[in-house]
Nucleic acid binder design. Structure first.
Length: 965
RNA sequence: GCUGGAGUGGUGAAAUGGUAGACACGCCUGCCUUAGGAGCAGGUCCCUUCGGGGGUGGAGGUUCAAGUCCUCUCUCCAGCACCA
C-alpha cells in the first residue's frame, strides 16, 4: 500500500456535495464587478453513456473554467443537451422505448456522469433542445427567417437515405453515403424547406479572416464555401437543319449560359456541355435529331447516384445532334453535348469546354474525337527588359519507346532534348531536322506533329550579354531508320556532351529545363495545359497575357463577371419524428403560412412516434396534429409534417443559455450585449464545417434582423484532438475498444483521469493521443505525492529561492492553462512539487499556492487538501481574516511577484564561434566588458579562444555571450 | 490533384532565433523488502582515443547563432475534389 493514499471515492463524494450545497457554480450574469467570460463546449447529444471522449471534451474545458474563476472572471460555463435528432431516435427504436422517454432517461444518466467528473458547469442554465420551452423559440426564429425570405420552400433534388428513410443535407453525405449508416444515397425530388445560407457565402468567408482561429479550421470553412470567380457567358443556339416547323424552334434569343473561371480561354472553346438535368434540353427537343439516344442517356444518368457518377471518372455523354452553339468569340458553330461530368447543381449547369486548357474537357474531347485548340502559350523563365526575339525549336525524337536526349554537364543544363535556333524565315521542321543532324547525326526522320502552341522562354544570355525571348516551336519526330551522317559541331561543343536514348520516364525525371519539360510532356504524355501564358489564336487578344486580358475578353463577348460558390442552400426539412416541428401550415390551396406566435410552441404530437412514417414523415400519421390545424385554421388546412434538421436547434443554443427560462423572448437582449460573442468555444474537429458554419450563418441572419448584437458568434474556436486506444486506434463501438472511464475512476479517481487527459498533449491541437493506463497511474502517484507533502508543513516563511520557484510555477501554470497547453502547465506543477519535496519542511504558504494551482486540474483532491491541511490548521485559524473562503475554488489565483521572475544574477551560456563552451554567472545589468571579462576568466573559454582575444563579441544581456576568435 | 497543417528519443511530448529532448511513460542499475503492479537513489539521443565530435525527415541558404526563418525535396495527417 502506498503511503498517504487518499480515498478518492470518499473525497470526490464529499467535494461534489459541498460544491452543490455552496451553490458555487451558479453564475450571476448581471454581476458588474467582474469581467464576463463566456466559455462553452459543444453540448452533447444524449447517447446514454459517457466515454473517455466526453471526459476529454468536458473535464478539460472545465480546467479553464475553474482557472478563470480563480483569476477573477465572472465565468459562464453552461451545458445542455442536443436532444432532438436521429441518434436518439435510432437508439430509442433499438431499445424499444418511446423516443422521448429514452431521451430524457439518457439525459438524466449523463447529468450524473458529468457531475462525477467534477465539472463546474452551471446547471441552472441548462437547455434541452427537445423541450417545448426551447423549441418554441427555435420555431419563433425559424419564422423570423421565413418572414424575411431567408427560409423558403422549393422543389429540389435531395439526397435520400433509404435505410434511415429520410432526406439528408449535402453535409450529411460523405462520399455519396449516408453519414450515419453508410448506406448509398439515392436522389429524389421533393418540396423542401431551405435556409438561404448562400446569401451569406461572401460574408461567411470574409468575416473569417480576422478571427483568431487555427488556420486549418478557417481553411476547411473556406473550402466548404468554395468561392470561385469567373464569368457568365452566353452561347447562342443555332439549329443545323430541319426543325419541323419554324414555331417549334427556340427563338433567336435562346442561349446556353455557362459559368467559367477561364473566360480567357474562350477562343479555345470547341464544344459546350449541358448537365443531364439541364432544362434547356427539353426546350431543344424539336431540334434534336437523336432524341432517343439523348433520352436514354438522361435516364441512365438519373438512375445513378451522385456517388456512382463521380466514382466513375470515365467520361460519358451524348451529342445533341441538330443543335449547335455559337462560340461568341470566334463565331464558329460548335457541337453541344450532354454529359454527367457537368453538375446541374453548380454554376449554370452548363460549361464551355476548352479541351486544350482543362483536364476534364481534354479527356472528354479525346474520347469523342473533338478538336483541341490551343489558345495559351506557356511562358517560362524570368521576365526580361528590352529583350531580343529569337525563333527556336525543341524536338522530341522517338524511337522504339525511347527519347533522344543530350546530356550536357550540369552547369550547361544537364539533360536536354534536341533544340536550336532557327535562321531567318526558316521552317521550324527544317531547323529541327538540321539541329538533330548536327548534334546527333540522325538523318532519317519523320515529322509526327508540330504543336499548335509555342513556348515563350525569357532568359538572359550571358554569353552574348543580351536579354532574350525565345519563341520555341515544339516538334515531334520519329526515327524512320538508324541512318546517320557526320555530326557537324561547333568547335567549342565537341566532346562536351553525349547523345543518349532514354525512356520518357527517365527523361521526365532528369530534364530540368521548363521548356524541354513541357515539350516532352506535350508529345509523350499529352494533357491539358491549365497554367497561364500568352494568348494565341485569340483574335485581337493574341499576344496578351491571359490574366491581364480576362476582363476585356468578358466584355468583348458580352459576358458578365460573376462569382460562384460551392456551398448550397441549407436543406432543413427532415422526414422524421424526433425533431422540432416546422411551424408552418398550408391553406386549402397549398400555400404555406406561419403558425402565429400565440400558438407556439407548435408542439410535437405524441400520438405518433419514430416508426409511424414508413418512408414518409411520421407526423402525417398524427390525428392530433391534423385536428389541431383544422381547429385553429379551418377546414382544408393541413400541417407541415416535416421536422427541422437538428443543426437548426444547435445553431442558437448558446443564445438561450443566457436566459433559458425566458417566456417572452428567445434570449435576453441586454445579457446578449454583455456576453456575446462567446469568448471561447471548444469542440471537435468533426463540427468544423457543418455545425460551426451553420451557426455562424444563423447568427449573422439574426444579426441582420437586429436580434443579436454582433456579427460573429464565437470569438475563439478550439478544436481538441482525439483520444485513441492504447494501440493508437480510433475508439469505436464497432471495434469494442471504447475506453470506459468508470473503471479508471473507480481505480484511480476522477482527478487522476482528468490530469492524465490534460497531460497527454496540447489540448489546442488536432493531435491523436493514445490512452495509457500507466499514464493515469502516474498522475495518481503525483497526486499521492502532493497529499503526502501535507504531512510536512511548516509555518516558516518560504526562502527566497522557494519564492522564486513558486513565482515561476504560478506564472507558467496560468499562462499555459490560458493557451490550452495543459500538458506543460502540469509539467510546471511537477517541477514545483519536485522542488518542494527536496525541502526539509514545506512552508505552509508555498503549499497553499500549490493547492491553488492544483485546484483547476484536480478539483476534488485540492478541495480535500484545502479543507484538511490548510483550513483546519492552527495557522489558518490564527489569521484574523474577514472571511476565509469555504472552498478552494473560491480562492484567488495566486499573484505573481514579477520581480521574482527575473533574478539579479543569471547563469548565461558562453559560446565560442556559436558553440557552447561554458557558462558564467552574471548580473542582468552587466556590461559587455564585464561579461567578456567574466567569460575570459573561465579556463575552458580561454582554452577555446586559444589565448587570443575575440575579434567579435555578440552580447545579448540575459541571453547569450558569443565570442568569435 | 488542390488547399492547409505537421515531421524532434523506444512512447506522449518540451524548447520568445540563444545550453535540443523540460515534464512524464517505458526501460536499465542499485537500495529497502518475505514479496512487488509499493517506495527511494541513480542512469537512459548517437559516436568517442573521454579531449571532444555528431544529432530535430533529406539537400541547400540566411545568421555570430537555426528544431525555429527562406528555397527545393520526401513523408504523414486533415479538408476539398468531375465545382468548370
Amino acid at each position: 500500500m502506498a503511503k498517504n493514499r487518499f480515498d478518492h471515492t470518499e473525497i470526490e463524494k464529499k467535494a461534489q456535495e459541498k460544491w452543490a450545497s455552496l451553490d458555487l457554480y451558479q453564475t450571476d450574469l448581471t454581476d458588474t464587478t467582474k469581467d464576463p467570460y463566456y466559455l462553452m463546449f459543444e453540448f452533447p447529444f444524449p447517447s446514454g453513456d459517457l466515454h473517455i471522449g466526453h471526459w476529454y471534451a468536458f473535464a478539460l474545458t472545465d480546467i479553464f473554467a475553474r482557472y478563470l474563476r480563480m483569476a477573477g472572471k465572472n465565468v459562464l460555463f453552461p451545458v445542455g443537451f442536443d436532444s432532438f435528432g436521429l441518434p436518439a431516435e435510432n437508439a430509442a427504436i433499438k431499445n424499444g422505448k418511446p423516443t422521448p422517454e429514452w431521451t430524457y432517461n439518457a439525459i438524466d444518466t449523463m447529468r450524473g456522469q458529468m457531475r462525477s467528473m467534477g465539472t463546474s458547469v452551471d446547471w441552472s442554465k441548462e437547455v434541452i433542445t427537445s423541450d417545448p420551452e426551447y423549441y418554441r423559440w427555435t420555431q419563433w426564429l425559424f419564422l423570423k427567417l421565413f418572414e424575411h425570405k431567408l427560409a423558403e420552400r422549393r422543389e429540389a433534388p435531395v439526397k435520400w437515405c433509404p435505410k434511415d428513410a429520410t432526406v439528408l443535407a449535402n453535409e450529411q453525405v460523405i462520399d455519396g453515403k449516408c453519414e450515419r449508416c453508410g448506406t448509398d444515397v439515392e436522389e429524389k425530388y421533393l418540396t423542401q424547406w431551405f435556409l438561404k445560407i448562400t446569401d451569406y457565402a461572401e460574408r461567411l468567408l470574409t468575416d473569417l479572416d480576422p478571427l483568431p482561429w487555427r488556420e486549418d479550421i478557417k481553411e476547411s470553412q473556406r473550402a466548404w464555401i468554395g468561392k470561385s470567380e469567373g464569368a457568365k457567358l452566353r452561347f447562342q443556339v443555332v439549329s443545323t437543319e430541319n426543325a419541323t416547323t419554324p414555331s417549334d424552334k427556340p427563338d433567336g434569343s435562346t442561349a446556353i449560359e455557362v459559368f467559367t473561371t477561364r473566360p480567357d480561354t474562350i477562343y479555345g472553346v470547341t464544344y459546350v456541355v449541358l448537365a443531364p438535368e439541364h432544362p434547356l434540353i427539353d426546350t431543344f427537343e424539336p431540334l434534336i435529331t437523336n432524341g432517343g439516344a439523348v433520352a436514354a442517356y438522361r435516364q441512365a444518368t438519373s438512375r445513378k447516384s451522385e456517388r456512382e457518377r463521380s466514382e466513375n471518372k470515365d467520361k460519358t455523354g451524348v451529342q445533341l445532334e441538330g443543335v449547335m452553339a455559337m462560340n461568341p468569340a470566334t463565331r464558329e458553330e460548335i457541337p453541344v453535348y450532354v454529359a454527367d461530368y457537368v453538375l446541374a447543381s453548380y454554376g449554370t449547369g452548363a460549361v464551355m469546354a476548352v479541351p486544350a486548357h482543362d483536364e476534364r474537357d481534354f479527356v472528354f474531347a479525346k474520347k469523342f474525337n473533338l478538336p483541341i485548340k490551343h489558345v495559351i502559350d506557356p511562358i517560362t523563365g524570368h521576365e526580361q527588359t528590352d529583350p531580343k526575339h529569337k525563333n527556336k525549336i525543341v524536338a522530341v525524337v522517338e524511337h522504339e519507346g525511347k527519347v533522344l536526349t543530350i546530356k550536357w554537364p550540369e552547369e550547361l543544363g544537364g539533360r536536354l532534348l534536341v533544340g536550336g535556333t532557327a535562321e531567318e524565315g526558316e521552317d521550324p521542321a527544317v531547323t529541327a531536322a538540321r539541329e538533330i543532324l548536327e548534334e546527333t547525326g540522325y538523318a532519317d526522320l519523320e515529322l509526327v506533329e508540330q504543336a499548335q502552341e509555342q513556348v515563350h522562354h525569357s532568359y538572359f544570355a550571358f554569353s552574348k550579354n543580351q536579354a532574350t525571348i525565345a519563341h520555341t516551336t515544339l516538334l515531334h519526330f520519329r526515327l524512320r531508320s538508324n541512318r546517320m551522317e557526320e555530326t557537324q559541331l561547333e568547335a567549342d561543343e565537341i566532346g562536351k556532351f553525349t547523345v543518349e536514348w532514354v525512356t520518357p520516364d527517365v527523361a521526365r525525371k532528369e530534364i530540368h529545363d521548363d521548356q524541354h519539360q513541357y515539350t516532352l510532356a506535350r508529345f509523350t504524355n499529352y494533357s491539358a495545359y491549365t497554367g497561364n501564358g500568352t494568348l494565341s489564336n485569340s483574335g485581337s487578344f493574341t499576344g496578351r497575357d491571359n490574366r491581364e486580358a480576362m476582363a476585356d475578353i468578358i466584355e468583348a463577348v458580352g459576358g458578365e463577371v460573376r462569382t460562384n460558390y460551392r456551398i448550397r442552400d441549407w436543406l432543413v426539412s427532415r422526414q422524421r419524428y424526433w425533431g422540432c416541428p416546422i411551424p408552418i401550415v398550408y391553406d386549402p390551396e397549398g400555400n404555406p403560412h406561419a403558425v402565429p406566435a400565440e400558438h407556439l410552441p407548435w408542439t410535437l404530437p405524441t400520438d405518433v412516434d419514430s416508426d409511424s412514417g414508413k418512408g414518409q414523415s411520421p407526423l402525417k400519421a398524427s390525428k392530433e396534429l391534423a385536428a389541431r390545424v383544422e381547429q385553429i385554421f379551418g377546414e382544408g388546412w393541413t400541417p407541415e409534417c416535416d421536422t427541422l434538421d437538428v443543426f437548426v436547434d444547435s445553431s442558437w443554443y448558446f443564445l438561450r443559455y443566457l436566459d433559458p427560462k425566458d417566456e417572452h423572448d428567445f434570449s435576453n437582449q441586454s445579457l446578449m450585449k454583455k456576453w456575446l460573442p462567446v469568448n471561447r468555444y471548444s469542440g471537435g474537429s468533426e463540427h468544423t464545417t457543418v455545425h460551426l458554419l451553420y451557426a455562424r450563418f444563423f447568427y449573422k441572419a439574426l444579426y441582420d434582423l437586429g436580434l443579436v448584437p454582433t456579427s460573429e458568434p464565437f470569438y475563439e474556436r478550439f478544436n481538441r484532438g482525439l483520444v485513441l486506444d492504447s494501440e493508437g486506434r480510433k475508439m469505436s463501438k464497432r471495434w469494442g475498444n471504447v475506453v470506459n472511464p468508470d473503471e479508471m475512476v473507480k481505480l484511480y479517481g476522477a482527478d487522476a483521469v482528468r490530469m492524465y487527459l490534460a497531460f497527454m498533449g496540447p489540448y489546442n491541437e488536432a493531435g491523436h493521443y493514445p490512452w495509457k493506463l500507466t499514464g493515469v497511474e502516474a498522475m495518481r502517484k503525483f497526486l499521492d505525492r502532493i497529499v503526502s507533502l501535507s504531512g510536512r508543513l511548516s509555518d516558516e516563511e518560504p526562502s527566497e529561492a522557494t519564492l522564486r520557484v513558486l513565482a515561476k510555477a504560478i506564472d507558467k501554470v496560468g499562462t499555459d492553462i490560458t493557451r490550452f497547453k495543459y500538458n506543460t502547465a502540469i509539467s510546471g506543477l511537477m517541477v514545483l512539487v519536485n522542488e518542494l519535496e527536496a525541502l526539509s519542511a514545506v512552508p505552509r504558504r508555498a503549499y497553499h499556492d500549490l493547492i491553488s494551482l492544483l485546484a483547476p486540474f484536480a478539483p476534488h483532491v485540492a478541495e480535500y487538501l484545502y479543507e484538511n491541511a490548510l483550513l483546519t490548521s492552527s495557522h489558518a485559524g490564527a489569521v484574523e481574516t474577514i472571511e476565509i473562503p469555504k472552498s478552494v475554488h473560491e480562492l484567488e489565483w495566486p499573484l505573481v511577484d514579477e520581480s521574482l521572475l527575473t533574478t539579479e544574477t543569471i547563469i548565461m551560456g558562453v559560446q565560442i564561434a556559436g558553440k557552447r563552451r561554458g557558462e558564467v554567472s552574471l548580473s542582468l545589468e552587466a556590461t559587455e566588458e564585464e561579461a567578456v571579462a567574466a567569460a575570459l576568466s573561465q579556463p575552458d573559454v580561454a582554452k577555446f579562444l586559444e589565448g587570443g582575444t575575440p575579434s567579435r563579441v555578440i552580447y545579448v544581456p540575459g541571453r547569450i555571450l558569443n565570442l568569435i576568435p
